[in-house]
Design a protein around this nucleic acid. Structure first.
Length: 196
DNA sequence: AGTGCGATTGACT
DNA sequence: GTCAATCGCACTA
């Protein structure tokens, strides 16, 4: 597993959302490395009414406007964090929501933060993923293409077919098929019929 | 200054 | 399957 270079990331948010399936998200913690294989993503595009960047740059969403490959971490529902990877050039607000991981390294560490969770549930869902990797707003704006406490790594296994569906949990733009997932993976979130 | 709600989760029926 | 929890942020006035 090696650090992905920014030049390897597609210069298009939809292409990036597909590209990230099968790649890894790596978190370096004092107790050791925690990592997982990305199995589910959603793209949030320019002009997309469901996107946090839709109404322009604000203090909260500014990381979405960074050069592709930076982290946008936000706090939601008073309890959870979610992480996006910015997807366009500097000044353009778009990103890829990371929705689920297949745990690879540091599973014991993840379990400490996800007590009682079944293996498949440890990082299934954006809030759970962030909890498992101890991701919070302090990591907002971090360059994921640089060695540090959070970074994107190359793929570690052969990739299965990628499925496409509508995005989960939205009240706007509900028909756009911008969710991508690894078919057959037990680590993918959402209702089963969405992941066939 | 006040209001409404959200890219969710976990507990409970 | 249903639903409350919980609070930062954007928007209105």
């Amino acid at each position: 597993m090696r650090l992905l270079r920014r030049s390897e990331l597609p210069v298009d948010t939809v292409a990036l959302a597909r590209y990230l399936i099968g790649k890894t998200l790596v978190r370096e913690l004092p107790e050791g490395r925690v990592s997982g294989r990305i199995v589910e993503t959603e793209a949030y595009l320019v002009g997309d009414a469901a996107a946090h960047a839709f109404r322009g740059l604000t203090p909260r969403n500014r990381s979405l406007f960074l050069e592709r490959g930076h982290a946008y971490v936000y706090f939601i529902y008073g309890n959870w964090h979610s992480i996006n990877v910015s997807g366009e050039t500097r000044g353009v607000g778009a990103g890829v929501l990371l929705r689920a991981l297949e745990p690879l390294e540091g599973i014991a560490s993840m379990r400490l933060r996800r007590p009682g969770a079944e293996m498949a549930d440890i990082a299934r869902g954006p809030g759970r993923l962030a909890t498992a990797l101890r991701i919070d707003r302090r990591l907002d704006g971090m360059d994921l293409c640089a060695a540090g406490s959070l970074w994107l790594g190359s793929g570690v296994k052969r990739r299965g077919p990628i499925g496409v569906s509508v995005r989960i949990g939205l009240s706007r733009e509900v028909n756009r098929e911008l969710r991508f997932y690894e078919r057959g993976s037990p680590y993918v979130s959402g209702p089963r019929w969405l992941s066939l």
